[in-house]
């Protein structure tokens, strides 16, 4: 049963955004969500209900790998890194998004 709140509009584009953020360097889940919100100036909000399934999905597909690292605090933190395949996927998805958003704009202009 989908439990997306009104703010959760990202659906399929979430994967793409996560890959983009992770491509900048190893980062943990919470930080990924916050980063996306930050850059988009809160237009895009990511709930953990969508974030973690997406992360697991991406990890299963071997686009990202995870690693428990000891951060600044003594507690171990799970960090995600982009893989080579992930990078390739990111480029593909980026192009795809371009095509889609262009297409949507086309329809909007002509209809």
């Amino acid at each position: 049963m989908p439990r997306e709140g009104k703010k959760d509009v990202l659906l399929g584009t979430l994967d793409l955004l996560i890959l983009r953020v992770v491509s900048s360097g190893p980062i943990h889940g919470y930080a990924i969500a916050r980063r996306i919100e930050q850059i988009s100036e809160d237009v895009l909000t990511v709930q953990q209900g969508s974030l973690y399934p997406a992360l697991h999905r991406l990890e299963k597909k071997a686009f990202i790998t995870s690693d428990w690292q000891t951060g600044e605090t003594s507690k171990p933190v799970k960090m995600y890194t982009l893989t080579v395949d992930g990078n390739r996927q990111l480029e593909e998805e980026k192009k795809h998004w371009q095509d889609v958003s262009n297409a949507v704009n086309l329809v909007l202009r002509q209809a």
Binding site: L17, I36, E41, V43
Partner: peptide, 16 residues
């Protein structure tokens, strides 16, 4: 849509 699309593009294009 505009807002969303812009936001996504921002994230995608954002510098590390």
């Amino acid at each position: 849509w505009e807002t969303l699309a812009t936001a996504i593009s921002d994230v995608l294009g954002s510098r590390p």
